[in-house]
Amino acid sequence: MKHLLTALLAAAPLPALAFPVTVQSCNREVTFDAPPQAAVSNDVNLTEMMLALGLSDHMIGYTGISGWRTLDETLREGVAELPELSPRYPSREVLIGAGADFYFAGWNYGLRVGGEVTPETLEPYGIKVYELTESCIHIMDKPKISMEDMYNDLLNLGRIFGVEDRATALVEGYRAELAAYLETLPPLDNPPRVFVYDSGEDAPFTAGRYAMPTAIIEAAGGVNIMDDLEKSWAEIGWETVIERNPEVIIIVNYGDVTADQKIAFLEGNPAFANIPAVMNDRYVVLEYVEATPGPRNIAAIRKVAEALRAE
């Protein structure tokens, strides 16, 4: 994948798609008369989508990273010339003051239902919004999450910025890489039961059927024990986790509580002692940027697939 990204980013600009173009963004159609020239992305995963498509020259900054989690070296290098306009969710004034003409965000990824920054509140200022597909469940019905949601965002960004050929090549590369890898894996007799532990001690915050880890787990050959939770990310009770008896636990690593601390909490609580994943020390750690929609989902599937097949 690194070789593919390097080749794409180093390639000469591809011919621009004829404008205007219209893309579907959640329950809206958004028309662009020309590629945005002053784009802002929110959060690490959305920013990496922009960088994977070689769109930094169209960006004036990013938001919502340092206030939540540390930039790793890969992303730090990619945004080296860009300012962070806000450490967490930006205000409307921040985006307007920066001269933004495009905001790539999502519901609970820089947008809040009924909040100050939404597609409707930014429209009068000439700032068009494209919403992360995974996040659309917060405002509309949508199918269960799949890898197609992430691919859809890359392809739509390609159309918006006039680099559709580049986006298509990137997505086809991801598909081919993933298919070739999965063909090398030994089959599983039964899909292992997997629990996603994001955070929380009194009650765990986890991934439901509309959150990206469900797609990652299924692609790797497992099943999310909260597959029937009709939400993306949500808080549940520990009783449900104990009852559903996961064989593997995915730890999402970010924020002030480390993955090691989360594992120590699980192993130190007698109530979890008989959960197979805890008994057999079967954990897989995904960084936040791997567990949310973006280019690193491919590596995340590899990690989970290996964990599901480990003795």
Rank of each mutant, 00 (worst) to 15 (best):
A234C: 01
I145F: 01
E172G: 00
E120Y: 08
L170K: 07
S199Q: 07
L188P: 08
I236F: 02
N152I: 01
L132C: 08
Y210H: 14
Y125N: 12
Q261W: 04
E148V: 11
I217V: 14
P143R: 08
T240L: 11
E183A: 15
E243D: 15
T206A: 12
E131Q: 14
I160K: 05
M212E: 09
P246G: 09
G208E: 04
I137N: 03
L229G: 05
I263Q: 11
L154V: 07
E218K: 08
D165N: 06
A169K: 10
L155M: 07
G158N: 06
E134I: 03
D202F: 01
Y210G: 02
A211R: 00
A220G: 11
P213M: 00
G221P: 14
T258N: 12
E183F: 04
R175M: 05
I263S: 07
D153T: 08
Y210D: 02
A215Y: 03
L188T: 07
E243H: 04
Y210T: 01
R209H: 02
G237C: 05
A207L: 02
R209Y: 00
E201L: 11
E247N: 05
N152S: 11
R209L: 06
N152E: 09
A169I: 01
C136M: 13
E235K: 06
Y174W: 15
Y130V: 08
E172M: 00
K144M: 08
I263T: 05
E131T: 14
M226G: 03
Y197A: 12
Q261V: 07
A264I: 08
V163H: 09
